[in-house]
């Protein structure tokens, strides 16, 4: 599996007053097994970018290659691509429609034209993977809590056995515990099931301890593409774009400015704790 995004532009409503260049010459590539965060302030084009990855939107310039093949070329099997690049939209719980949870999760694999037993097996595995209990399989999806609905919706995409899973703002509107659950789920999918995961977010704290590489979007342009720690070393630039570094990184760099000899390239609470203790000689 590999995705290459090559000089992609996207212009909404070209030629009218509503014209908006949402993507401007975006280039990057994704390799098998990566764990990527895509950040940017609201309106920077993150959702537009990820809806290009499974061919739901067509670039107005440039091209996207999946396993080396241009996905907008004639005769490309776009339906198969949608199975390989699983896209979970912002507020995915709003797309639930079936009478019970299990049936809803079956929707994706059914559309892939699989056999009945295979469909049900996949739905079962997906629901298990996202941590939905057996007794909730046959309740109406509308009777679940917000966090559970979201996990069911993610299962709906997982059941298609994607090679790449893209989660658009998976933590929006959840409480800290719900957020941690979703992120732990993403970790699990990445490490145990070997799925390439891309998480879209504007919270650096959510991403810091999870992803290995971060792409930063600003005003339709990809302005940074580097390992997580490297990106968080650019506090001033990030803040100029309306983003922040994780709180612990901010605290360490403030301490450094105040004269304490601490390192300021740490991103997890654990690291920060031992660094501060080290400085105080404990």
């Amino acid at each position: 599996m590999s995705i290459i995004v090559n000089h992609v532009d996207h212009i909404y409503n070209p030629g009218t007053v509503f014209e908006k260049k949402a993507l401007n010459d975006v280039t990057f590539s994704v390799e098998n097994g990566e764990y990527i965060g895509l950040v940017g302030r609201t309106g920077s084009g993150k959702s537009t970018l990820v809806t290009h990855l499974n061919g739901l939107m067509k670039p107005t310039g440039g091209g996207i290659y999946y396993d080396g093949v241009d996905i907008s070329s004639d005769g490309y099997d776009i339906k198969a691509l949608r199975g390989k690049v699983g896209l979970v939209f912002q507020y995915p719980e709003h797309q639930l429609f079936e009478e019970d949870v299990f049936a809803d999760v079956c929707f994706g694999p059914k559309n892939l034209g699989l056999k009945e037993t295979e469909i049900e097996l996949r739905a079962y595995e997906a629901l298990k993977a996202v941590g939905i209990k057996d007794e909730q399989f046959y309740v109406s999806p509308f009777d679940l809590s917000g966090g559970e609905k979201r996990r069911v919706a993610i299962a709906g995409v997982l059941a298609m056995k994607p090679e790449v899973l893209v989660l658009d703002e998976p933590c929006a509107g959840l409480d800290p515990a719900g957020r941690e659950e979703i992120l732990a789920l993403a970790d699990h999918l990445h490490s145990s099931l070997n799925i390439t995961v891309i998480i879209v977010s504007h919270s650096m704290d959510d991403l810091a301890e999870h992803v290995e590489r971060i792409l930063v979007m600003n005003d339709g342009m990809l302005v940074m593409d580097a390992p997580t720690r490297v990106v968080f070393g650019h506090r001033a630039e990030l803040e100029a774009m309306g983003l922040a570094v994780p709180e612990v990184t901010a605290i360490l760099s403030d301490l450094k400015k105040a004269g304490l000899p601490v390192r300021d390239d740490l991103i997890t609470i654990e690291e920060a704790r031992s660094e501060i203790l080290r400085v105080f000689g404990k």
Binding site: T51, N54, L56, K79, R82, L87, F89, L112, G156
Partner: peptide, 10 residues
């Protein structure tokens, strides 16, 4: 948005 989300599910 809903159409796109369901299309993403094939």
């Amino acid at each position: 948005r809903i159409i796109k989300a369901q299309q993403a599910r094939g």
